[in-house]
Design a protein around this nucleic acid. Structure first.
Lengths: 363, 363
DNA sequence: TTGTAGGCGTTATCAC
DNA sequence: GTGATAACGCCTACAA
């Protein structure tokens, strides 16, 4: 009797050579047959596949990597794994990559030192993956360059590097849309809560600000520099920023560049007894799940799709043979869409609602 | 002149053999020296390390894996990558593993079919990683078993499997604490918003419910079955659950098993003109960043730490030689702490606040 | 269409 | 303490 029914024991691994013997072909043929390569007789392929299935054969990833030089792995590098935006981007990347048979490695770049470590050649990103998705990390354009030099496919989310596939929201348009919404309500004293705080310092804020300002100018409105405050794309940052804005010469409407910051801003308002949309209007970006809860007007985007689109473009680049020779086409990724979702956190200037009696205005 | 200043070209990879030649020793010695193994003369080691540094040598992960049988990789499997709780657990895992030189692979198990695919031996989790962290996936205890059989280290978060290191909150105590808080305020008509909705079906809800009920019994209070509603640990689920609770014979206080569900519950209250903490008290679990924003009373836990603790225990198990022989110690992981954070979403029964006039009660 | 054999870059087991 | 050298398991020209 054979020994394969001893349970509790780790089953002996079946190798390609076992399949070859059983199917009565060479290992080369097994390899070709199983990977769907050409030059294998249909009948042979069927036989090999059957045997492999029956034996439960699966190639060893490590061996395949070493021999083929491909890792079947994608790395996702994000500023912070725990944040709403980034974790959803990662979710999109993972769904697409796993589906395509790629492993996905995550790396958080919370601290600048971690980015440095990645730029360092010793990180060997090129040996660990076939492609990398860089999410909002322009600090590290050197990283991108070194990756490209080492023949690692690159795709980005939120910023661009060279002409690699990039999933970038039309941020100026987003800024302009936000401005338009507020201006349309009659607001002329506008504030902005943007980036520019610690660990994340990326390009998104300036692009959104630019669009916002340009739109304002069309209305002959100027946004004072003191009314542009950094919030670091975090809840507490948004809270602090709104506090600053309210401190002196408060605006009647505020554009927060992310919903999370907007939530913080709402919090600051409520603590002062001010009603969002009545005393001060607030518009955010993202359409975070909670935007609905607090009735936040926002500009919606599909974050998971952003990640998925980047992953698809990356895989396409990896699988495109021309990528290696350097003359692949730009391989542009889809451009994300966005749309205004109006809720009650924004409203007309001096638009105290009839059904409200508690609201008060600043002196 | 050498060719190494041709830029734009992918630099030729330096192999262990190059280091060996340059340092005038064998590859075996280089390998030992670089990995800090014994039986290497101090002077030799210094020389080898210097040369390696100078040449920028780094071992190829794929080759090392194939030869050593270790992957230096950890897999984190979570029900949903984009959710607040899980993404923070992953952040904790990643921080610890990366720090220790391990790669971390993420796998989302959103759909049951994905779990099945992992259980299938063809997923070869054992060949792709040295250890796996299973987060809230008791659906897949078969998965855990198969992993163990294949000698992959396992650690869990949120549930237990065998006596592998597990990071599990004392859920009954959490439930009891929530109950105590509400009961102390005089509430006797209690509702619960728990799990039991689609994709996530884990052990946490029943444990929290048990503790909650037991504490109630100490006060002679019974929680009617109709007042225990599933919310799937999601915002919308919490919203819907609260709507159900309010529909008929509404409770005066509700225990939501996660803050996200609590947020949904608050939303349902507000839509009806009910004031949290006055008309209906709500207590959550987690101390999500937004709990502060909406003044949600909650039971705080440190989610990132949970992931980190699991990772630490996992790495310890991986590095413990006894693990392989099967007689390693249980290697218990740290038990997470928790604490009540009282805010205004909970308050005394019939405790209409003096400064409130708009609040109304249900008929 | 199929098989042979060299190589991928390390690790680990021996002798020395 | 050090050095050959055989694995590790697969891929892929090249030959047949």
């Amino acid at each position: 009797m054979s020994t394969d029914d001893t349970n509790g024991e780790a089953p002996r691994r079946v190798r390609i050579e076992d399949v070859a013997a059983q199917a009565d072909v060479s290992v080369a043929t097994v390899s070709r047959a199983l990977r769907g390569l050409p030059n294998v007789a249909a009948s042979t392929r069927r036989r090999v596949v059957d045997v492999a299935e029956q034996l439960g054969y699966q190639p060893d990833p490590a061996a395949a990597r070493l021999a083929a030089g491909r890792t079947n792995t994608v790395i996702a590098i994000v500023p912070h794994l725990g944040s709403w935006y980034f974790s959803n981007v990662v979710a999109g990347i993972e769904a697409v990559c796993t589906q395509a048979g790629y492993d996905v490695l995550v790396i958080g770049a919370d601290e600048p030192s971690r980015v440095d470590r990645l730029i360092d050649e010793r990180a060997q990103l090129d040996r660990r993956a076939d492609g990398v998705v860089l999410v909002d990390l322009p600090v590290a354009s050197e990283l991108a360059e070194s990756l490209v030099r080492r023949r690692v496919a690159v795709a980005t989310v939120g910023w661009r590097v060279g002409d690699h596939p990039a999933v970038v929201l039309d941020d100026p348009a987003v800024g302009a849309l936000a401005a338009e919404h507020l201006l349309h309500f009659g607001h002329r004293d506008l504030g902005v809560i943007g980036g520019d705080l610690d660990p994340i310092a990326f390009e998104v804020p300036e692009r959104r600000l630019r669009g916002f300002r340009e739109q304002c100018q069309r209305y002959g409105v100027d946004v004072a520099a003191e009314r542009i405050v950094g919030g670091g794309f975090r809840l507490d940052g948004g809270y602090a920023a709104m506090a600053v804005l309210l401190e002196h010469d408060p605006p009647t409407a505020v554009f927060a560049m992310s919903d999370e910051m907007a939530f913080g801003a709402l919090m600051a308002l409520q603590e002062r007894g001010l009603t969002p949309g009545v005393d001060v209007s607030v518009i955010g970006v993202d359409d975070h799940e909670f935007a609905h809860v607090v009735e936040l007007t926002t500009i919606r985007q599909n974050v998971v799709d952003n990640g998925a689109a980047a992953a698809r473009a990356l895989l396409a680049a990896i699988q495109d043979p021309r990528t290696t020779t350097g003359d692949a086409e730009p391989a542009e990724a889809e451009t994300p869409t966005f749309s205004l979702v109006a809720r009650s956190s924004t409203g007309p200037l001096n638009g105290h609602r009839a059904d409200r009696t508690l609201s008060s205005r600043l002196p």
